[in-house]
Amino acid sequence: DSHLRGGEQIDWLRRLDQETDNLRAALNWALAQPDYAEQAARMALALCWYWRIRSRVIEGRTWLRRIRQEVIDDRALLAAITYHAGHFAWMQADYDRAMALQEASLSLWQSLEQPNLVGLALTRHTMGMASHHQGDLAAAAAHFQASLDLFARAEDVWGMAFARQWLGANCLRLGDVAQAQAHLERGLELIRPSGDKWVTSLLLTWLAELAWQEGELAQAARYAEEACQLQEAVGHAHSLAVSWQMLAQVAQKTGDMAAARRHYRAALNIYEKLGNRPNMTAVQAALDNLPLS
């Protein structure tokens, strides 16, 4: 998955798009064989970041559910599969299931003789995301800091940028605007040289939220517009919907109800495709409460 973290990201995403039918056929074939469970699991694991960046949440979650029904003896492989299954659950706002799967993944990582620092870091990161959405911001902060520390121990610059997006988001919700801004801006400094458009867009999305909360509407719109461009390029519909919501809020605040309605509908359409019911409900409520003019 290193090809999906850098300047070649979009080229590799397109290559995988072209091979989708062949990859599905190969996975189906492997799962139909009596002794190919681990081969199928490794194939699926290689596709997880592709499914995630392209927001193919339902497909990814369905494949991993099938694979987790098989007997997989390799604990590191099972830990990674369980991590991704938990993250796909988070992407559908199934936070209790996401946390349960991350806890199972963490236990598997911790049972290994040789620690996998990046695996542990990713798992703690999604545990933080689930805690954040469940309202336990203190637990979320601990998970995010642990994730950043583990990425730092692994000397994983991409991971350190990745971890700072939610560290910043959690600080923002805790009311520590200065610390939130520091994390998000440092994350951008770390990730921009790599050419990774996806993580760059995630950091921009949270900077837009920060600007919005500070009443800086023009800056919020600029961040959200840049995030939208990058998210459309990589096909990450999940975060694109969030950026559309931000642009809708700015448009509504500045009195452009037609633009607000258009942006909310774009976000709603994405959440419907992702099967994210809580966000569908929230955006529909915003649309219903939007003034006619």
Rank of each mutant, 00 (worst) to 15 (best):
L217Q: 14
L268N: 10
A266Q: 14
H143Y: 13
L268W: 12
A182V: 00
A141K: 09
G168T: 08
A121H: 06
H3W: 10
D136A: 12
R54Q: 09
K253I: 03
Q231S: 11
H125N: 11
A258R: 04
W206D: 13
Q9E: 14
A130Q: 07
N289Q: 15
D35P: 04
V250E: 00
M129V: 13
A152T: 13
Y83C: 05
P193Q: 06
A37I: 15
L112I: 06
R277M: 06
A140R: 08
E103W: 04
Q114E: 15
D256H: 13
A221V: 00
D96P: 10
L122R: 13
R261A: 12
H125W: 10
R75S: 08
H87P: 01
P278T: 04
R261H: 06
T20A: 13
R5K: 15
E214K: 11
I270G: 04
I10G: 02
S111G: 12
G119L: 01
A178T: 11
L290P: 03
E189Y: 09
L108E: 05
Y271T: 00
E19A: 15
A40I: 10
A141F: 07
A251M: 06
H183I: 07
H125A: 06
W198T: 13
L203M: 11
T20G: 01
L108K: 15
Y95N: 11
L292A: 13
R56N: 13
L203C: 06
A121I: 13
Q114D: 10
F151L: 05
Q69L: 10
T126R: 09
E225M: 12
W49Q: 15
M43F: 14
W109K: 11
Q69V: 02
G135V: 12
L77Y: 03
W109P: 07
I67M: 03
Q69I: 01
Q219V: 08
W166V: 00
R24I: 10
E189M: 09
H132M: 11
L117P: 04
V283G: 01
E214I: 00
Y36N: 14
N28D: 15
P193G: 03
K253D: 03
R164C: 00
H263N: 15
A104N: 14
G128E: 05
H87M: 09
R222T: 09
T82Y: 01
R222D: 15
L230C: 07
I81L: 07
W244I: 01
N289W: 00
A251G: 05
G195F: 02
A221T: 10
R186Q: 07
Y223C: 13
E185D: 07
R124Y: 11
A142C: 07
G195T: 10
R153S: 12
L27M: 11
R5Q: 10
A79D: 01
E38S: 12
L122H: 14
L122P: 02
Q165S: 08
D73C: 03
L23C: 04
L202E: 07
E103L: 15
E70S: 08
R186P: 00
N276L: 02
A211G: 08
W51M: 13
A267K: 01
A79S: 12
A154K: 07
L274W: 01
L112R: 14
W198C: 09
G128H: 01
N116P: 07
S147M: 03
I191Q: 00
W244F: 09
R15V: 14
G159R: 01
V157W: 08
